[in-house]
Amino acid sequence: MEIKGFSTSAVAAGIRYKDRLDLGLIYSNVPAVTAGVFTTNQVKAAPVIIDQDRLRQGRAQAILVNSGCANACTGVKGMENANITSSLLATRLKIDEKMVLLSSTGVIGEQLNIGAFRSAMGKLVEGLGEDNFDSVARAIMTTDTFPKVVSRVVTIGGQEVKFMGMAKGAGMIMPNMATMLSFVITDAQISFPELHDSLKQATDRTFNRITVDGDTSTNDMVLVMANGTAENAWIDEDNPIDKQLFQDTLEGVLKELALQIVNDGEGASKCITIRVCGARGEAEAEQIARTVANSPLVKTAFFGEDANWGRIFAAMGRAGVRFDPSRVDIAFGDVVIVRDGLAVGPDAEKAATKLLKEKNITVCIDLKDGTDCEEIYTCDFSLDYVKINADYRS
């Protein structure tokens, strides 16, 4: 799918490895309304700091993204290098440097290979075209095993509106946000306050509901660019129906990307949904679900296909939420293995163990203490996760 007014490009710049796509560009022919959400980690990479400042204007025209080097924990030199890269691109595109947003992923603590950027920038800009979106998705991969891309078309205000999104992430994942990057382009005509609000709400319910290993990174961001070429009626504070449709579509795009990240979790063999219902509030349900989802003992049990519900119960008990253990039900899929806080029996556990051989698993926890439900999406911990992260820098 193509979106009028947007073009993309990706090249193998040799930032860290030879002959591997590692530098990508997303470009809008006109200044696009742009919003972003970023890592909450106190240690922020240079591109995150720069983008947060530049996005105060609510407009951007280009996103320059590299893999191979995170440009995090690189001090003043890292900031200088980041600014050099945006200046190189702005000069080539003949746009204001403040209209360039930056994004990096890779090894923390190393300086950018500025020579690689200088050598590749001309080829990168010359390669701009309407059909390179997937190539940019490949350029931002690190330990990912596949590029993550989603597209949607929806009718808003009588006009066809298109969305295209990409993401990278497989490890160091637990947003508020995670070692993940995501970029969405759309031809919707929308005001900045509505775009920013829609993005924040959509992110809270998607990327902020996934966890691979409980680690929050230094470089995480989600950026959305809307160039208005669909010429739909303006989505603003006076158009709540269209805003809701826009937000629902954006959330759908982000959720599919988020689930792709979980499915690609480093060394993962299973995608697991932890659903907590019967809670006194959404926050309490989410807190319990997140604690269970982040438990290494729970995650390794899933890898071993062991219906060890005791580990789930133990994780719930340290979540910091008051509940009555004697009222709790736990089910794997449609197999109830705990009812009113007690084991149902060996037959149920045997059936649950059989279910754990599947790729997609849902754990349902009913507190029977209220009406609120929330979900967190995670994966199992395998031997490969340790292997991947033990020699990541080599």
Rank of each mutant, 00 (worst) to 15 (best):
R209V: 05
F38Y: 10
Y17K: 11
A170L: 13
G370N: 12
T273D: 14
N41S: 13
F38H: 09
S9P: 01
V125M: 09
F246C: 10
N83A: 05
F192N: 13
G341R: 07
V161R: 10
R322F: 13
P193K: 12
A10P: 03
Q52Y: 06
I361L: 14
A289G: 10
I388A: 05
T145I: 04
W309G: 06
G127I: 11
M225L: 13
V344L: 10
I140A: 08
R56Q: 15
F313C: 05
G267P: 07
K270A: 11
D248L: 08
F183D: 15
M225I: 05
L367P: 04
F146D: 13
G265I: 13
E2P: 00
S382I: 14
M177L: 14
L356M: 15
R205N: 15
T211A: 11
R118M: 14
V335A: 07
S103K: 00
K200T: 15
L25T: 03
P240F: 02
Y27T: 05
L342K: 12
A167D: 13
R205L: 15
A319M: 03
D204N: 13
L55F: 08
A60L: 07
F163V: 12
N132H: 06
S9E: 10
Q57K: 08
V149K: 05
C379W: 01
G157L: 14
D306W: 08
E256K: 05
D334F: 02
N239C: 10
A230K: 02
G265H: 06
D329F: 01
E375R: 00
I376N: 05
C373I: 11
P296M: 06
A301I: 12
G68C: 02
R290Y: 01
A137D: 07
K299I: 12
Y17F: 02
Q159F: 01
E284T: 08
Q61L: 01
M99L: 13
V336C: 05
G5Y: 04
K123I: 14
A307E: 10
A46S: 11
T179M: 06
A301R: 00
K299L: 06
N29K: 12
R322E: 15
V150K: 08
D144N: 11
D96T: 03
A139Y: 06
K357T: 15
A331T: 01
T155K: 05
I185A: 05
V292Q: 12
T40S: 14
E284Y: 07
K368R: 09
A202E: 05
E305L: 08
K44C: 04
T218Q: 00
V292F: 04
T179H: 00
L297Y: 06
V328P: 04
I274C: 09
P296S: 09
A230G: 10
K148G: 07
R59I: 14
D334E: 15
M221C: 14
D144I: 11
L124F: 04
A167Y: 00
T8Y: 08
L124Q: 05
I95L: 04
L367V: 07
Q61M: 08
G78H: 02
N176C: 09
I190V: 13
T145E: 07
C364M: 14
K123A: 14
L297Q: 09
E110Y: 00
D213N: 06
A390C: 04
A315M: 12
I108R: 00
L64Q: 01
G122N: 09
I95V: 09
L23G: 01
M121C: 02
R393G: 01
